[in-house]
Design a protein around this nucleic acid. Sequence first.
DNA 1: TGCCAAATGAATGTCAGACATTTAAATGTA
DNA 2: TACATTTAAATGTCTGACATTCATTTGGCA
Lengths: 245, 245
Amino acid sequence: MKIDPSSPADLSAQIAAAIRDAIVEGRLIVDERLPSEAELADQFSVSRPTVREALKRLAAQSLIRTQRGATGGAFVNRLSFEAAQAQQITTSTLLLSMNDVSFETACEARFTLERACAALSAARCTADHLAAMRAEVHRQSQPGLTDEAFCASDVAFHRALVDGACNPVLSYQLAGAVEAMQPLMNMITFTARDRARIVALHGAIADAVAARNAAAVTAGLTALEEETQTLAHRVFAARRDRDPA
Amino acid sequence: MKIDPSSPADLSAQIAAAIRDAIVEGRLIVDERLPSEAELADQFSVSRPTVREALKRLAAQSLIRTQRGATGGAFVNRLSFEAAQAQQITTSTLLLSMNDVSFETACEARFTLERACAALSAARCTADHLAAMRAEVHRQSQPGLTDEAFCASDVAFHRALVDGACNPVLSYQLAGAVEAMQPLMNMITFTARDRARIVALHGAIADAVAARNAAAVTAGLTALEEETQTLAHRVFAARRDRDPA
DNA sequence: TGCCAAATGAATGTCAGACATTTAAATGTA
DNA sequence: TACATTTAAATGTCTGACATTCATTTGGCA
């Protein structure tokens, strides 16, 4: 592992990249301990703070963890599905909020991906997954539920549907698509709330899953997408009327 | 923005979290300049190295960028689709390599997601997308292509297919699924290379896209998935025979 | 002998101060 | 006015020190 001191890039960035490559290429394996900060500083011929900045960069990506104390140090982290999902959700949320992606595009992407799970979920989902979906549908039908709680339940419903495919890689990939939409959906439900219709569609989807009817699940999701798009159009149209600037 | 000095967590992690929250919640907007490192150190009552570690954590996630010089400082970054995709690919690759996900599961997830794009891509893809797909098919049919180059072309073909859906959010989401599979696919093509069959399937998919025939695109992808799974099974069976340990 | 408590040492976490480098803006001069 | 120089502000880096954590070792005591 070598770095180029004459490069215009930060030394800490170069060191982080060198270690990251070593991890990605398997030269450093899970739970392996890296040399101590002082040793790394020697190896790269830099000072300890520079090494520390590099290690913090890697820690921010969950590539390593650090322990204090006698047997402490930096260890290669086993990237868990949870950590990966959390990162993905943050990234997706920021991506949507910073790039003025149209609601239409984001909504289309989300439901396109979710429909991809429909067949697998209908075929494989367990009683637990189905119970989770039913529970969320029931919660959503309670009066007096705040908008935030309704949206959270909405997300939980879809997560259960996706997890029903029993493919953790698929669940991970879809986490960003489903969760990052929550802020955008909030934006709508505040004004154009039509909960009964959404709850009915959720119920229909749950029924279709219970019946192992993939086509009906897909149809339910498509109906939900259309409903969402319609609501969004109505909201945006109302905004244009009220605030033509 | 406040931190708790008595918390067991690192100060730099707390500071990074505080700033990250401010960005996610919109209190800091794109291209806004953060206070200088010295000012942040004052605000949080910590030293400058600690602030720097926090900023490096955020830089590692592409949340901020830093500039040197008179008008320099840390600026909130507009998270680009490219940066988000690069992160997602790294994360997905590590997730697969560190969690002994079965080839079957990963392959299923990949093709399930890709099939989700089939209809959109068949309906919308431009001449450019189609030309890119054709070019990759042609490249793959060249003799003397290294395994690495063949796999890279394979990935490029699928990227073109996904991009054909003309939905950047969808492209972003699928980047990890498609690109992270490349190492796993390498593992196979080294031993059980059957390029002609794969090239033929790619050609059929390109033809189906050109004909705007969504069902045929889906069928082509399914055939490709079956081919890949069969190859994988053959390789794993051969390994078991040769190396029963 | 066996067990518990205190000292040890190695590692990370934090701080203070200094210097180097980069960059844009202000300043001065032809 | 145009160009060269100076200046100042900011990040990048280094040195050295101290604080804190924690497994290990050591010591004492029953």
